[in-house]
Design a protein around this nucleic acid. Structure first.
Lengths: 107, 107
DNA sequence: CACTTACGTAAGTATATGCTAACATATCGA
DNA sequence: TCGATATGTTAGCATATACTTACGTAAGTG
């Protein structure tokens, strides 16, 4: 649900993780190395992000590779668009149609 | 800070309140009437929204009139834009320049 | 002035959250 | 199969959050 997305984004560490994973695939350990918190804490954050549909995981050997899933933010985007006027709403529509076209189903 | 904004948006009631106040001015009591929680609880939510820069208040007689402040969401918007590609980043820029031009200072 | 109306604030409480340390699991190389 | 590497899971704890009830305050009204 979109609520999980907002909740997930409320935590600064998780937002940083998302940015770290934008367009790149990184292992859990690599991600952890960017933060001062323990690895388990990072693991828990990654779980929250995954449950919110903001990241996807792929297992490769003993490692788990995470990657951001931008489509997970569409709900937030829609919410935001409400607060701008018609002109912006048109931009939003154009963006959704053009950018991450029909292939992306909201989770 | 933008962090307060994300935090504020994490709460469903607060998101509803924002939508309720989008483009309209409503009194605290009127807002409260839309929810099942007590009026003080609503008051506390409104405070969080105000501190995040997402609403503004205006006193009129004995009442306090709240109104959404869409510019408060610009930080979130910027964050989101990072996750779409160049084309979208251009749209974002255009929107920010055109829509809520120079008159709106980020709080 | 009381008295009412419209709100915010304070105190207290139950639950959610973020973190750590300790433990479990799974894959790969020797 | 044994050990090392990479990561998730559990239990426990401190702090943050969302509420409620009780109380404080300020602007109209009689």
């Amino acid at each position: 649900m979109t609520n999980d997305v907002f909740r997930a984004l409320a935590e600064p560490h998780r937002r940083e993780m998302l940015q770290l994973l934008r367009g790149t695939e990184r292992s859990a350990g690599e991600i952890a190395s960017f933060f001062d918190i323990t690895r388990p804490a990072v693991s828990q954050h990654l779980r929250v992000l995954a449950e919110a549909g903001l990241v996807v995981v792929r297992q490769e050997g003993t490692r788990r590779l995470y990657r951001a899933r931008p489509e997970g933010l569409l709900g937030v985007r829609a919410f935001l668009a409400e607060f701008w006027d018609q002109r912006l709403r048109r931009l939003k529509q154009a963006a959704e149609e053009e950018e991450y076209g029909a292939s992306n189903r909201e989770r």
